[in-house]
Amino acid sequence: MSRSLKLLGLALALSLLAFPAAAQKLNLGRVALPEEIAAWDTDVRPDGLGLPPGKGSVKQGEEIFLQQCASCHGQFGEGAGRWPALAGGLNTLKADRPDKTVGSFWPYLSTVYDYIRRAMPYGNAQSLTADETYAIVAFLLNMNDIVKDDFVLSKENFGKVKMPNAAGFFDDNREVAEKAFWKKDVCMTNCKKEVKILNRARVIDVTPESKTAPKVD
């Protein structure tokens, strides 16, 4: 064997012992089949990517909603008990107690479709067809006075629906808006004249399994 072949053999042997940190193909895993991707990749984006073919009317949506959704979300999407309200609350985001619903708060309709299709009905996820999902989304829009009673939602007209709070969001700006929290100097002594207790959890008394006063020795 020539010297260079010996060196090559040595290099190959070493390559079995240690992988370089750089990106490399490992010959692990396998190629995903189109059918497999289709089964899992149901996500929908605001630009409509991922929407399946199909359609559903407000009227159809109301029927499905009453059967499958209203027991938690209420007949009018008002929410039963602590389950989320889906309708109403328009113009309450500045209020002392904002009412954040699909209509008043959610910026994108695609989010509604995506979420219902992947996670609803609660406890029976991924059981709705594409058409049923379009219909429920249409009914939610109708309950929020965004579309009329005879509206039919489809893949084709999906992008034309505008949500009331679409412009209500901005990217994290804490490093600018809260710049004051990067403090050069902090006070260590005599930082305030007096300290008053402003409020106490005990007054509200909502803590589970509260304890009585301890014994001090």
Binding site: P46, D47, K100, Y108, F169, F170, D171
Partner: peptide, 30 residues
């Protein structure tokens, strides 16, 4: 899934966004 824009799903729009007093909300406060 690898993409070229955020998906704006439920947990990053209707939840886990920070509603301020003026009615607008900070998003992507990771």
């Amino acid at each position: 899934e690898v993409g070229d824009q955020p998906w704006q799903h439920r947990e990053e729009t209707s939840k886990y966004t920070d509603l301020l007093e003026n009615g607008t909300s900070r998003r992507f406060t990771f």
